[in-house]
Design a protein around this nucleic acid. Structure first.
Length: 903
RNA sequence: GGGCGUUUGGCUCAGGGGCAGAGCACUUCCUUCACACGGAAGGGGUCGCUGGUUCAAAUCCAGCAACGCCCACCA
């Protein structure tokens, strides 16, 4: 046996363990009974992992490691997402720093630059995941732009196109006139800006109630050139008279109708809204509803198109000034007020975005949403909290057709080909430059690429050989669990369900595990711009991967947000420390040290089964059995916060603080030593297995330090059957441990602990040095308690080793001279303190205890006197209350006697 | 505007109709041969507010307040 170093050094040990795992091939997809397949939500290749990923991956690794140990066939698939717009933006930025420009380079070279980027950052992400200890199959790494994946994406597009689920249509997009591309809603940046609300007069074609004009309020007067209607609120009685009338639009002299629409807020502006369907999303919706013409007044550079006289050729800003000037000149400018409103800007060049009508591709969701709703309502797909199910269903029910085209270069190009000669158009699995209809050579492919979510919706099956090798999915789809953040339930989770139901006729995963969002210490969202984010690698550097993982998992409660307590230097944004991760590291150290102690005391050890020989063993084995059950249930039920707490309390407070301490004396006793060693090793071994999925490194390192011949010994042959690594060792089966559950044994031990604690308390109260021995005798109150105390005698004496008690446990009929009495549950303990007794202090203590007991007793008696309680409360609750009241009454009596004794 | 969440000791948070909990911090004691990243003993809370349901409410319901997150919108 190698000597374990005195302190555990994660920085030195973790790489060694990692090497062992990787060399051993343990990460590979493993055969087994039952299945656990998890696909890692693909991080964007745009940079480093953040805290959300670190939590996400810690959860998945815990799930996968437990399943692997439990003998299931595990497959954890790693991959990254090309993240169209996000990556393109990053690459654009990088090129700009190099003095280059996408438009000058051309599409092909730009895509090459994106691939370079992908390879560089994909590698970084892979290394980070490896460092966290995640046992993914690194050899099967996937990328959403791999050739096979691309084929899957193309097939989905073509199938939906031919099945009539994909169509082309006009839609308002956020158009950047300077980059000449559409920007998705998600990537547009909103800024609040001080602007104006211009109140313009539109002349009525015939007077209404003596009025010959109405006033519309607008923040964008230049768009009035494209107005095709005026809307009022249906809830605005004052405007009812105007509905159905028309106004003559100034400048362009177009007669446009006044109508009612729910979009209009009667209380805002003038109550009349000018409607420009081609240049505003709401106006577009109103235009659709009321059959209005959509007039595009801007070209792709946001310059006014021909046909508007002097206004044609003006930019948006010039046009705005000119329009306002025109209205003023003609006496139609009613008034101007200041108005702050939010304006969308291009994330790249910061230009003001123009809502612009353009041709886009859509997925019709009507046929897809039904099965996707059913998958969740039927329970085939489960969420780990009902509220996420609700938000999924709400989103699904309000789902509108999905715009899947993006005016980008980096991504899956839409596989639709057009013939310029004969007008043929089709979606094809193979590129073509010849028209299959007319044989012409003027064929071109659609310039748009697909929304990133269009490709990631296939993640659970396109990563597993679909459509090329359908057999590969066998037994691994539906996947076991999808672990992800709640903000992509709609964007990703829902779409995965839709596509999987459509193409495979089954759900993509059985469980959706939504974990809390990790916020900064002050409760705000971590973001790059605020510089309040924490790099998980900085945490690993400082505390080790196990500490980071354990702390993150302990934060996984059923709350929707959690604050991460990291201190960050406000100026340099440098990571300074995280107290909770530090505590987690202390726990890792504790595990190491306890194990080290046990291994130092194993001289003469030979393998053998555990056996309950002492009350402490009975208690420990019972606690162990319950912990095995709780941890197994917790990991498979995804309640990781509970699991972390259960494990820490068990190992630290029960194993270390009591069991190991109590067992020390048996290690010194030749007759008892071997069985004590066997029991300790059994408890340690089981504990290591239970803790492994959460803290893989330290547990594996300790396992490594234990000789192979110690564990998993075949009772028949005496041969060791130990697995070569803890990560592939057998998971403790709760059924095998159930035999050790012993409620009576647990109560008996708790009783003995109470005696010990009372004695220690006395020592502290009288400031009796630990060096000074104390004589203690105990009087049990009959029955079980007497038996417990009697059997506990040796145990309590054994504590003399650690707490210098000279204990005589006997049926003390008389209170020993010079002693003080301690009342515990079912016993009196007498501690001989001689002339150290401070009568005043002792009296005060007992009086306080009496007061407390009496207060609770009074409450209990009040409850018992309540007829309603007796009649309606559950019988066992009533019985428990009666018992408690009796106990309290006895306590009061005993304490009162003690008080009398003192005087 | 809609949805969701949170409010429990100084701090961070569990719990979830029947005795108010943990860790950290704090106080006292202990460097005894696993661990001071440790051990032992303590102090500290009207469970956000107001009502309701119930024999019984920190817990369930309603309303309110504060904080936060998500989604939508801002003519």
């Amino acid at each position: 046996m190698e000597e374990m170093p005195k302190t555990y050094d994660p920085q030195a040990t973790e790489p060694e363990i990692l090497k062992k795992w990787l060399d051993g091939g343990y990460y590979r997809r493993r055969p087994g009974v039952g299945d656990c397949t998890v696909t890692i939500p693909p991080p964007n290749v745009t940079g480093m992992l953040h805290m959300g990923h670190a939590l996400d991956d810690s959860i998945q690794d815990a799930i996968v490691r437990q399943a692997r140990m439990a003998g299931k066939s595990t497959r954890w698939i790693l991959g990254t997402d090309h993240a169209g717009i996000a990556t393109q933006t990053k690459v654009d930025k990088k090129l700009k720093e190099e003095g280059k420009n996408r438009l000058e380079m051309g599409r092909e070279k730009f895509i090459d630059a994106c691939w370079d980027w992908t390879h560089e950052y994909g590698g970084i992400i892979q290394n980070q995941i490896r460092r966290m200890g995640c046992s993914v199959d690194f050899e099967g790494e996937r990328f959403t732009m791999d050739p096979e994946y691309a084929e899957a994406v193309r097939k989905v597009f073509c199938d939906w196109y031919h099945d009539g689920l994909i169509y082309r249509g006009k839609r308002i997009v956020n158009w950047c006139p300077s980059c000449t591309t559409a920007i998705s809603d998600d990537e547009a940046e909103y800024h609040n800006e001080a602007g104006h609300l211009w109140h313009l007069r539109y002349p009525l074609t015939e007077p209404v109630n003596g009025q010959d004009y109405i006033v519309v309020a607008t923040t964008r007067p230049e768009t009035m050139l494209g107005d095709t209607g005026v809307a009022v609120s249906p809830k605005d009685p004052e405007k009812a008279a105007f509905v159905g009338k028309t106004v003559m639009l100034p400048i362009v002299n177009r007669e446009i109708p006044i109508f009612e629409d729910w979009h209009v807020d009667a209380g805002f502006g003038s109550g009349f809204v000018k409607v420009t369907p081609a240049h505003d999303p709401n106006d577009y919706a109103m235009g659709e509803a009321h059959g209005l013409e959509k007039i595009n007044i801007f070209d792709e550079h946001a310059v006014v198109v021909d046909g508007y006289g002097a206004f044609s050729g003006m930019t948006r800003d010039e046009c705005r000034e000119a329009v306002v000037a025109w209205f003023e000149e003609h006496g139609l400018l009613d008034h101007i007020e200041d108005h702050e409103h939010s304006v969308m800007h291009c994330y790249r060049c910061d230009s003001t975005l123009e809502p612009w009508l353009s041709e886009q591709w859509f997925v019709a969701v009507d046929k897809l949403k039904g099965p996707a709703i059913e998958a969740v309502t039927s329970g085939r797909v489960r969420f780990n909290a009902d509220r996420w199910k609700q938000s999924y269903l709400t989103w699904m029910e309000n789902l509108k057709d999905w715009c899947i085209s993006r005016q980008l270069w980096w991504g899956h190009r839409i596989p639709v080909f057009y013939c310029e000669d004969c007008g043929w158009e089709d979606a094809l699995m193979e590129d073509t430059d010849v028209c299959p209809k007319c044989g012409g050579h003027h064929v071109h492919q659609d310039e748009n690429v697909l929304d990133t979510w269009f490709s990631s919706q296939l993640w659970t099956f396109a990563t597993q050989g679909w459509p090329q090798r359908p057999g590969e999915l066998e037994g691994h789809h539906p996947t076991t669990a999808l672990v992800t953040a709640r903000d992509i339930i709609a964007l990703w989770v829902a779409r995965m369900v839709m596509s999987s139901e459509y193409f495979l006729g089954e759900e993509p995963f059985r469980d959706v595990v939504i974990y809390p969002t990790i916020l900064a210490k002050d409760g705000s969202r971590m973001s790059k711009s605020k510089g309040n984010g924490v790099d998980p690698m900085a945490l690993i550097d400082k505390y080790g991967a196990d500490a980071m993982r354990f702390n993150l998992l302990s934060l996984f409660t059923n709350n929707q947000d959690v604050k991460f307590d990291a201190d960050i230097d406000k100026k340099t944004h440098e990571f300074l420390g995280s107290p909770r991760t530090e505590q987690a590291k202390a726990f890792v150290t504790k595990i190491w040290n306890a194990s080290r102690f046990l291994l130092m005391n194993m001289e003469g050890y030979t393998p053998g089964a555990p056996r309950v020989e002492t009350p402490a063993d009975a208690w420990m084995m019972s606690r162990l059995a319950k912990t095995v059950a709780a941890v197994t249930e917790g990991i498979t039920g995804y309640t990781f916060g509970d699991v972390a707490r259960t494990i820490q309390t068990f190992f630290w407070n029960e194993v270390c603080d009591w069991y190991v301490e109590v067992t020390k004396s048996r290690l010194k006793d030749d007759a008892a030593r071997l069985q004590a060693q066997r029991n300790l090793i059994f408890v340690l071994d089981t504990s290591l297995r239970l803790m492994h999925p959460l803290m893989p490194f330290v547990t594996e390192a300790i396992w490594d330090a234990m000789p192979a011949s110690w564990l998993d010994v075949d009772p028949e042959t005496g041969e060791a059957r130990r697995a070569e690594a803890l990560m592939v060792a057998a998971w403790p089966n709760p059924a095998d441990y159930a035999q050790y559950v012993d409620e009576k044994g647990e109560r008996a031990f708790a009783l003995a602990c109470a005696v010990v604690t009372d004695v220690r308390s006395t020592r502290a109260r009288y400031r009796i040095s630990p060096k000074e021995a104390l004589a203690v005798s105990v009087r049990a109150h009959g029955g079980d308690a007497a038996a417990a105390i009697e059997s506990m005698g040796a145990f309590i004496c054994s504590l003399a080793n650690v707490s210098d008690l000279a204990v005589a446990v006997e049926d003390a009929a008389e209170k020993p001279a010079g002693s003080i009495a301690l009342a515990g549950p079912d016993f009196d303990a007498f501690v001989v303190v001689g002339d150290l007794v401070d009568f005043a202090a002792e009296r005060a203590r007992i009086e306080k205890a009496i007061a407390k007991a009496q207060k609770e007793l009074a409450g209990a008696e009040r409850t018992l006197a309540n007829e309603g309680f007796i009649a309606k409360a559950a019988p066992e609750v009533v019985a428990a209350k009666r018992e408690r009241a009796a106990e309290l009454a006895a306590d009061v009596e005993r304490l009162t006697a003690q008080l009398a004794d003192l005087s």
